[in-house]
Design a protein around this nucleic acid. Structure first.
Length: 819
RNA sequence: GCGGCGGUGGUGGAACGGUAGACACGAUGCCCUCAAAAGGCAUUGUCCCUAGGGGACGUGUGGGUUCGAAUCCCACUCGCCGCACCA
């Protein structure tokens, strides 16, 4: 033993070559043609990588996870689709181009090559026949086609709006890409600009995006984040009339029960009527100054809830519809134009912000809910007061309904629902993205490019520097075109699409990736969608995962797809942190690159380690000694295989094992049961790997067991470890049986071998373990009680006391309750 | 503030309401070796006891349910994540 050593550098390329050469992981869309008509489908999908530089350790974990699931599904009788692609468009490649001069296409393609090398070196079981990258015209042709479909349906539109502008990246951003008032990409403070931009009408789907969360198996925290982001609130819209100008101003409120407490009225600085209202009043000048000052403030400064309330009176009043009171109007920046109607009724007694404003401006505060004991501002429940004879004394929950009904009858308001979600701003003033297939014609206006003219290819340019408009605008020859409608002079849209558009439908394309006639064939889609298991990081909980759901729903409404949700189940993996426990970053100098690890310990050890460190949805720190430990385990398994190889023969369970052989056969069956349970439904790969470690340890503990039992136990370990360490699993399994482990069905435990003849009976007195004794499996309750009472430890603790109760858990324990 | 998740040895982590700490790392000792590497074996929650054995205490804190609680319930506390002047 021991002259030969486990050498992943020899084993791993050997199997990778076989899988590549035989196209092992390719799968047909036609189950009948493959003779697999009876097999259920399984679509296992990891989030496609963004090709920037080299793959990092997080990618290894992501794809090791997905691969384990894919292998398990294949061997448990599924046709498995496990594809791969690259999300190649996007800002980083372009910013890199500006810095280094390397064209984004070149950088992206270099990076894609690095990912391809990595996936092969890691032994990920990918169906390469479906591979694509989103920057290829054969892909984005269909991204453009989907855009046209959405445009046709009114779900894509162009509009001027106050939008987030990143002065560093020189482009607009979606709300979802602004984090704490800063650009998600570069961290620069975001400004607000009034610009005409392209939007997708995702708000039309707010209710469905919310409701359908109940139909998918996603982690609770991700659903919660989406619910939060959609931010549905129920309430009422109530009209307040400005008599002097004869205009009704609706407000949205979630508290119509507090209407009698409204003592003033506030508008957002961006509200289009602010100047009109102030015109001619003594406040006109002050209003202009205030509005200009607020507009100049960054969203971050403005959004600070802690800062003192500011505002200016508009010099006008509105009528509170419930009591006819004239209440003063203000403009104040704590009211947001983007939410509700951009105007609010202020109820200082029952809203903290209104309270703060009223105190600062010395405005009346009138309690309408609760008693003296409830300190103001009071946001809790209670009986109404100061709300007229009709409502006084009524509990506020009831009053809510009663007041809304009354408003409705009088024509002053109605029930209403508001969402926090806003439309998806998709245009970017940047080069490296999918061109928007639209032409502007002086005569016809905005004209969609006809489908047959797609793709509108992204031209090659030399200067990527953004100058407030897309660098594409400088490509004169490309911009100048014919109007598809009238044939006259036209100009192409020079904005490109947000990268998230590309990744909102790629999972559909995998189903029919080589189709040149259409984006997909519906039958191909029907044979795979939805993805049964989606795997990726939580950082996409809102952006990508919401957009993709929106796309699928919109496409379903156009009868282009047959599912309502793209991802039936979602698994969010935890991050691999640096060995110091903090996030890996170049500046912290704690980045672990997978390449040297794989070269040194093998892909199998690296893959097993990231799955073994802990539950895969949790963050885990990288540990060099941890990988060495896993490598040690794989070596031990390999040595068993090497030692037992001899000539290939059966590796099946021997018929009548006895002694140490029986122990091994039992342990092997126990491991089968344990690993299968850990993988089915849950993702307890850490404990699954631990169980195969136990099996291997057991083999080392019983070196004298008969060879048949050892062969069986070793082959079983190889078979069970295959989803995590495919090369080693295949190697050892072949050494012992001559067969290919991935062609073998997943092992099933022999029920007879799952139970021993005896077990260790736990003997408790008052719930505390006092002794243990060997007892026959299946023994009667009385028998177990007797055995328990006879043990030394129990007798010592019984000590003549009365046994008042006996609890027997068959095949497990006896608990004697004494007084 | 709202929403979600979590607190177990020196470390990462195991535990259908039923033996807390599987498995692994680290540490210690031994074997193999001229030596080393590699490998193998053993010990390893804390404390206490006249110690081949036995006892007490132990899953953030306090209470509760139960024959029995890391697990279920209540309150608190600490930490992480998301959202946040959203009316």
């Amino acid at each position: 033993m021991g002259e030969k050593r486990y050498d992943p550098r020899r084993i791993e390329p050997k199997w990778q070559e076989i899988w590549a050469h035989e196209h092992t992981w390719e799968v047909s869309n036609d189950p009948i043609g493959e003779g697999g008509g009876e097999l259920p489908k399984s679509y296992v999908l990891e989030m496609l990588p963004y090709p920037s530089g080299e793959p990092h350790i997080g990618h290894l974990k992501n794809y090791a996870l997905g691969d384990a699931i894919a292998h398990f599904h294949r061997r448990t009788g599924h046709r498995v689709l496990h594809p791969m692609g690259y999300d190649a468009f996007g800002l980083p490649a372009e910013n890199n181009a500006i810095k280094t001069g390397v064209p984004p296409r070149e950088a992206a393609e270099q990076s894609i090559a690095a990912f391809q090398r990595a996936f092969r070196a890691w032994g990920i079981s990918i169906d390469w026949s479906r591979e694509f990258a989103t920057h290829q015209p054969s892909y984005y042709r269909w991204t453009q086609w989907i855009f046209l479909k959405l445009l046709e349906r009114g779900l894509a539109y162009r509009q001027e709006a106050a939008v987030n502008w990143c002065p560093n990246d020189q482009t607009v951003l979606a709300n979802e890409q602004v984090i704490d008032g800063r650009c998600e990409r570069c961290g620069h403070l975001v400004e607000i600009r009034q610009l005409e931009q392209w939007f997708f009408r995702i708000t039309d789907y707010a209710d469905r995006l919310l409701d359908d969360l109940d139909s998918i198996e996603w982690p609770e925290h991700v659903k919660a984040m989406q619910r939060n982001w959609i931010g549905r609130s129920e309430g009422a819209e109530v009209s307040f009339r400005c008599e002097e100008l004869g205009i009704d101003y609706p407000v949205f409120t979630t508290r119509p029960d507090t209407l009698f407490g409204a003592t003033f009225f506030v508008m957002a600085p961006e509200h289009p009527d602010v100047f009109k209202l102030a015109a001619g009043t003594e406040n006109e000048q002050a209003v202009h100054e205030y509005v200009n000052r607020s507009m100049a403030e960054s969203p971050e400064e403005r959004g600070d809830a802690e800062k003192p309330k500011t505002g200016v009176p508009l010099g006008r009043t509105v009528t509170n519809p419930v009591n006819g009171e004239q209440i003063p109007m203000y403009v104040a920046d704590y009211v947001l134009m983007e939410y509700g109607t951009g105007a609010i009724m202020a109820v200082p007694a029952h809203d903290e912000r209104d309270y703060a404003f009223a105190r600062a401006f010395d405005l009346p505060i009138r309690r309408v809910i609760g008693t003296e004991e409830d300190e103001l501002p009071y946001t809790g429940d209670g009986p109404l007061t100061n709300s007229g004879p009709e409502f006084d004394g009524m509990h506020n929950r009831e009053a809510y309904e009663a007041i809304v009904d009354w408003l409705d009858r009088e024509g002053n308001g109605h029930r209403s629902v508001n969402f926090r979600l806003r439309d998806w701003l998709l245009s970017r003033q940047r080069y490296w993205g999918c061109p928007i297939p639209v032409v502007y014609c002086d005569r016809c206006g905005l004209v969609p490019v006809p489908e047959e003219d797609l793709p509108i290819e992204l031209p090659e340019i030399e200067d990527y520097q953004p100058r407030g408009r897309s660098p594409l605008a400088a490509a004169e020859a490309w911009v100048a075109t014919r109007c598809p409608r009238c044939g006259g002079d036209g100009r192409r849209e020079t904005d490109t699409m947000d990268t998230f558009v590309d990744s909102s439908w790629y999972f559909l394309r995998y189903c029919d990736a080589r189709n040149d006639e259409q984006a997909w064939d519906r039958r191909a889609l029907a044979s795979w969608m939805p993805a049964d298991q989606y795997i990726g990081g939580v950082e996409h909980a809102i952006l990508h995962l919401m957009y993709a759901r929106f796309f699928v729903k919109a496409l379903a409404d156009m009868e282009l797809v047959d599912v309502q949700e793209p991802f039936k189940a979602l698994f969010t993996q935890g991050m691999i942190l640096g060995s110091d426990g903090s996030k890996m970053s170049k500046s912290a100098g704690n980045v672990v690159s997978p390449t040297p690890i794989v070269e040194r310990f093998g892909a199998d050890a690296a893959r097993c380690y990231v799955l073994f460190v802990g539950p895969p949805d949790q963050d885990a720190a990288w540990s060099d000694t941890g990988v060495e430990g896993v490598h040690r385990f794989l070596s031990r398994l390999w040595r068993l295989g090497d030692e037992l190889a001899g000539e290939p023969g059966p590796a099946e369970q021997p018929h009548d094992p006895s002694g140490d052989g029986l122990t091994l056969v039992r342990k092997a069956n126990w491991a089968i049961e344990k690993v299968t349970g850990d993988m089915r439904g849950r993702f307890a790969f850490n404990t699954a790997i631990a169980a195969t470690m136990e099996l291997v340890n057991e083999l080392y503990r019983h070196p004298a067991a008969d060879a048949a039992a050892r062969r069986f136990a070793t082959a079983t370990a190889a078979s069970l470890v295959f989803p995590f360490a495919p090369h080693l699993g295949a190697e050892v399994y072949e050494l012992l049986s001559g067969a290919r482990v991935w062609e073998e069905p997943w092992p099933e435990a022999d029920p007879e071998m799952l139970q021993a003849d005896t077990f260790e009976l736990v003997c408790q007195v008052n719930g505390r373990v006092r002794d243990r004794v060997s007892a026959p499996t299946g023994a009667a309750r009385e028998e177990l009680e007797r055995l328990c009472r006879e043990t030394r430890g129990v007798r010592a603790h019984l000590d003549g006391q009365d046994v008042v109760k006996v609890i027997v858990v068959p095949d497990k324990l006896v608990n004697l309750v004494v007084r």
